[in-house]
Design a protein around this nucleic acid. Structure first.
Lengths: 349, 349
DNA sequence: CCTGAGCCTGACAACGTTGTCCAGGCTCTA
DNA sequence: TAGAGCCTGGACAACGTTGTCAGGCTCAGG
C-alpha cells in the first residue's frame, strides 16, 4: 500500500467557530480549570488576585460559558417550548408574549414553533423540543391524540395544554370558556329579537370550534328555536369559503338576520361581506379584533383573554417544575361580551 | 479515622427525570453503546437482527436521544435566536413566522425573545442566546450600540439585523425603505392639496422613527413647504401621548389638515381621535393595519412587508452559515402605498 | 487448511462544563 | 513550635453523545 496521508490529523475544525473554553482561559491565566469555573459562576473560595487574573484572561479571549455543556452537566436546560398554531395570528401574539414573560421571570428561555394546524407537524415539533430536553412544554394542540407524549411526561417533562384540551391523556389544560362565551353571544342576539341566526366557524375537528358550535346550539335550544342546517357552516377559515357561507345564509329564501362567527378570522371576512350587504345584519364574533370599535357599526364580540391564557398556563408549568403541583386540572378562563353596536342591531325583516 | 459513610454514593438524582440513555438501551439490548448510536442515527453496518433488538429496547425504555448532548459533541446546535421588540405587536407576528419557516426548512429551531425596547434587556437576551450557542441570531435592535456582539460574531455566530441597523458594528442589515416610504406617503398628501401636514412618530432614538421623520422632511422640502415645529411630535407610542399630540395639532390656531403617522400603534390611536373630530382630516399611516379597508374612510397606508423582511433576513443568516456569504450588506425592502380613502381627502380649510 | 478481504461490533476518547475530594500553604492557638 | 483548622487551588470523573479505530467473525480463493 502506498504511503498515503490518510491519517486524520486532529482537524482544527470550527467547533462553534473555535471558541475559547475554560481550559484556554485557565491556561492563559495560569490557573486550574476549576478555578475558572468558580470565577465564572461567582463561587466563593478564590483570592481577589486570582480572580482578577482570570477575569483578564476571559476578557482577552472573549470567553463565554457554553451553557449547552453546562446544561448537560446540570440536568436542567432552563428553557421551555411553546408550540402554537401560527405565530402570525394576532390571537397568539399576546399569548406567546405572556408565556415568555413568565419564563423570563423564572430565568428560562422560550423556544417557539408553529404547527400550522397540522397534527404531524405538532408532534414533530414537540418531540424535537423533548429531544432538546426543554424543561417544560406549553402546547396549543393541533392534533387530537397526544398519547405520544406519555413517555415524555412520565420522564419528567412538565406539560400544559392551552386553548384546547389534550387528546387521550391526562394533563393540565387551560382553556377559554368557549361554550359559555358562544352561548352568551348568541343569547345576546336572541335578546335583541333575532331568531334566524347563522353560525360560521372553523373545522369541527378543532375543539374550540366544536365547543362554540355547542354554545350556539345551547343558546338556541334554551330559547326554543329550532335550528336549520343551512344556518350552520363549519370548515376552513379561508376567506373564500367563509364569504360563500355568509352569502348563502344571507341570500337563502329564509335568510338569517344575524350571524355569530366562530373566530377572529371568520369575523373579519364576515364584516367585509356585511359591509357590501344592503340590509343590515347583526353580528357577534368570538375573539376580539383590533379596531372593532371604529367600524360602522362597531363589532360586538365575545373577547378571550389571550394573555391570561398564556400566563396561567406558564405559571402552572413552573409550578409543575417546582413540584408544587399535584394532579392535572382543567382551568377555564372566562370570556367577556363587549357590545359595540353590531350585536345590538334589530332584525331587519 | 473512624469508618464514616462519607462516600458519595451515586445519588440517583433526577437528571431529566431519570431518562434512559443510550447506555441503558445498550445494556438492555445486550449490545455496545456505539451500536445503539448507529441504530438511532440510521447509520449503516448493523445487522437487521441486532437493529431489531435495539429498536425493541428503545421502545421498551421510551428512549429519546438527548440532542443537547449530541450538539455538544457535534458543534452545531441547529437553533437560531430571534430577538425582537414585542411578540405581541402585530407587525412582528408575520416577521417571526417567516423567520421560523426558513429555520424549519434548514432543520433549525427558533428561540424567541422580546426586548421590550430596552437596550439592556436586548443585550442580556442576545448574550444568553450566544451562551446557548445558537448558530445564528436575527436581531431587531433596541439599543444603538452593538459592539458587545463583536467577540461573538468573530467567534462565528452568524448575525443579521432586521428593521433597524446595528450600532457601531459592520453586519448584515435588512430594513424597510423607511425614508422613501414616508416621503412617498407625505408626498401623496401634498399631491392631494395639503400643505399643513402633521407628523406623529415614535421616539427619535429609534432608527425607523428618525428615518420616517426624515422622509417627511424630505417630502415637505421638495414641495417647498416650511415645516412648523408644532407639526411634529415624537415620543412614546402610548395612546395618551399620541392622543394629546394629535389633538394639539388639530386645535392649534393654524391647524394641520392632514397627519402622517409613524407606525401602526400611532395610526390606530389617531384614527380614534379623527373619528371624534368634526372636520375631516386626511391621514396616511406607516405600516398596514388590519381592517384598514373597512373603516370610514379606509385608511391609506405605507405598507411594510414584514414577512419579506423576516424571510430575507433568515435566508441571509443561513447563507452566512453555509459560508456562501462574504461581506455584510444592507438590503432595503421597498414599501407600498395602499390608497383607501383617508389619504385622498382634500384639505378642509 | 491458510490467507486476506470485508463486514459487524464495541472500547475508548472527546465535546465543555460542574461536583467531589484531596493536597498544600497559611494562620492561629496552646 | 507544633498541631489544628481554614482557605485556596487543582486533579479527576461524570453528564450523554459521536468519531476513531481495532478486533473478531465469515467467506471466498488459493
Amino acid at each position: 500500500m502506498p504511503e498515503t496521508t490518510r491519517r486524520t490529523e486532529r482537524l482544527p475544525r470550527n467547533r462553534y467557530g473555535n471558541r475559547p473554553t475554560m481550559k484556554d482561559v485557565a491556561a492563559r491565566a495560569g490557573v486550574g480549570l476549576k478555578t475558572v469555573s468558580r470565577v465564572v459562576n461567582g463561587e466563593a473560595g478564590v483570592t481577589p488576585e486570582t480572580e482578577r487574573r482570570v477575569q483578564e484572561a476571559i476578557e482577552a479571549l472573549g470567553f463565554r460559558r457554553n451553557d449547552s455543556a453546562r446544561v448537560l452537566r446540570k440536568g436542567r436546560t432552563a428553557s421551555i417550548g411553546l408550540v402554537l398554531e401560527d405565530l402570525a395570528d394576532p390571537f397568539y401574539g399576546p399569548l406567546s408574549r405572556a408565556v415568555e414573560e413568565v419564563a423570563r421571570a423564572h430565568g428560562a428561555l422560550l423556544i417557539n414553533g408553529s404547527s400550522a394546524e397540522d397534527a404531524d407537524r405538532e408532534q414533530e415539533l414537540v418531540l424535537a423540543l423533548c429531544a432538546r430536553r426543554v424543561d417544560g412544554l406549553v402546547v396549543i394542540p393541533a392534533g387530537d391524540d397526544h398519547r405520544y407524549l406519555e413517555p415524555e411526561i412520565k420522564a419528567g417533562v412538565a406539560t400544559v395544554f392551552v386553548d384546547r384540551p389534550a387528546g387521550h391523556i391526562d394533563a393540565d389544560v387551560v382553556v377559554s370558556d368557549n361554550h359559555g362565551g358562544a352561548r352568551d353571544g348568541v343569547s345576546h342576539l336572541i335578546a335583541h329579537g333575532h331568531r334566524r341566526i347563522g353560525f360560521i366557524g372553523d373545522m369541527p375537528r378543532i375543539h374550540t370550534a366544536a365547543e362554540r358550535l355547542r354554545g350556539y346550539r345551547t343558546a338556541m335550544e334554551d330559547a326554543g328555536i329550532q335550528v336549520a342546517d343551512s344556518w350552520m357552516s363549519l370548515g376552513i377559515t379561508d376567506p373564500d369559503r367563509v364569504r360563500r357561507a355568509a352569502e348563502d345564509m344571507l341570500s337563502s329564501p329564509d335568510p338569517v338576520t344575524a350571524i355569530f362567527t366562530g373566530n377572529n378570522r371568520v369575523t373579519v371576512t364576515v364584516v367585509r361581506v356585511l359591509a357590501e350587504h344592503a340590509r343590515p345584519v347583526a353580528l357577534v364574533g368570538f375573539d376580539d379584533i383590533e379596531l372593532a370599535d371604529l367600524l360602522q357599526p362597531g363589532v360586538t364580540v365575545v373577547a378571550q383573554d389571550a394573555a391570561t391564557l398564556g400566563r396561567t398556563a406558564a405559571e402552572r408549568l413552573f409550578r409543575q417544575l417546582d413540584g408544587t403541583l399535584l394532579t392535572p386540572e382543567r382551568i377555564v378562563i372566562p370570556t367577556r361580551l363587549i357590545t359595540r353596536g353590531s350585536g345590538e342591531l334589530p332584525p331587519a325583516d
